[in-house]
Design a protein around this nucleic acid. Sequence first.
RNA 1: GGGCGCGUAGCUCAGUUGGCAGAGCAACUGGCUUUUAACCAGUAGGUCCCAGGUUCGAGCCCUGGCGCGCUCACCA
Length: 497
Amino acid sequence: MTEIAQDDRLAKLAQLRAEGLDPYPPRGVAGTPVEELRAAAGTPDEPGPRVGERVTAAGRLVGLRDFGKLIFAPLQDRTGRIQVGLQKNRLSEWWPRRKHLDGGDLVAVSGELGHTQKGEPTIWADEVQLLSKAVAAPPEKWHGLVDVEQRYRRRYVDLWASEGVREVFQARSRVLSLVRRFLEDQGYLEVETPILHPIVGGAAARPFVTHYNALDADFYLRIAPELYLKRLIVGGLERVFEIARNFRNEGLSRRHNPEFTMLELYEAQADYRRMMEITEQLMEHLALELHGQTTLTWRGEQYDLKAPFARLSYADLLREHAGVDLADEAALRAKARELGLDADMPAGKLAHELFEETVEPHLHGPCFVVDYPVAISPLAKVKPDDPTVAERFEVYLGGMELGNAFTELNDPAEQERRFAEQVASLDPEAPGEVDVDYVQALEYGMPPAGGLGIGIDRLVMVLTGQDSIRDVLLFPALRPQRGDAAAQEAEPAADEA
RNA sequence: GGGCGCGUAGCUCAGUUGGCAGAGCAACUGGCUUUUAACCAGUAGGUCCCAGGUUCGAGCCCUGGCGCGCUCACCA
């Protein structure tokens, strides 16, 4: 037992065992979901179909109100709560054992479904079975877990002790399920591609490095599944998607977690215009399925996910908010210096710095920003009428990037050239070597295709009204907890050095 | 990595000018058969994040460290 086990509960545990009762019995009890029982109880004026019937429910006791010869206790399962009434005269033999119960214990309760005088649906128990003794005390009943660190570190408590938390993750699951159905209905195939990559690619980010013992080589946790999914387009699968956990060895923020989930999809014979349609249709569909309407509130602002979304040109936005022309490199550098940005970087990256600084905060959305500089789009095809601009868009909402898409570059020679440029740039986020195998895949011929990536975590944030990515991740990244001794050992005190 | 803030009972939080460590909930004892944050009476519960320092005296002031949050940087 650890330090969080409570002495009084351990004493009860010992007492249970002394009486020959197993506090951790091997078999569970299949009860009826409590939400169903509540519905089947109806109200005292209009009793439901199962009133008077003997029912069974299993779950966690989340509180006890003891009246002497009567105890009320809310019982919670994955679907909600229902009240249990423990009465001396219905539980004659079991009654003395009520003292073994604590808030937080897992139990199964059987008894007649009915109501109290105040009309609360109640299971009037004639049998109680302890399914698992909680020797750690639950958090304060009214506030739940408030300390955010404790909430993230002990999500297993937060999920049942804090209001609304379970619902967020149920909604997240629903989003994934709806996405799968939406795409499968359009002929998409869900695939799984490697997470361990020998070459970093598909995005610009610092990778996590690991060592592959069997191959005696350093590998990288993927920063994006893109290049493998496009190999499958070469392979003729034509419509593929992956709900991919990606890993980027970068900072944490309300919008960033080093491991995050990205929906990526690729469709042969499509282009970025088709990707815009699928994006807005998918987002509208999710809003309707989750909320029954296309409007929602996020961080105090109203948004309407009704398709179509506005299409806004990257160059126009830059002109409007930064007052500079994308093609005018001198003006870009002047403006960057004015804003105190690093003005020495390549023109394409510089423009994007300006874009993030001046335009992004104003993108209420939902909207598509279209036609990005080629220099920051090494995997996208250029526009036929303007070789400096790529057929690429990002979808924004509330100043936050939700997705990124383009018409895929399928010319192997040009792809090879752009990879080489990246490698030569010595950018710490650029790949260290050209992915020759990917170029060779293109040499076999990749059909014209559109590709799209959508940040699932951020999308769920918007759909569930959560401000922080941590609130849509069951176990967000946190520094590992060490004992004080270990901490002292790892970081010797300054006066000892 | 920088700046700001927070860290006190199992949980949620007070803590005055530096002067005996507090409340509610949870727990324990007693009472109560219709409450739903039940109620009433009583009891017990502390490494005030850690390590130093200043001081007659530190939860409070100073230094360093640890953890978390916000924010900036970073994130094509």
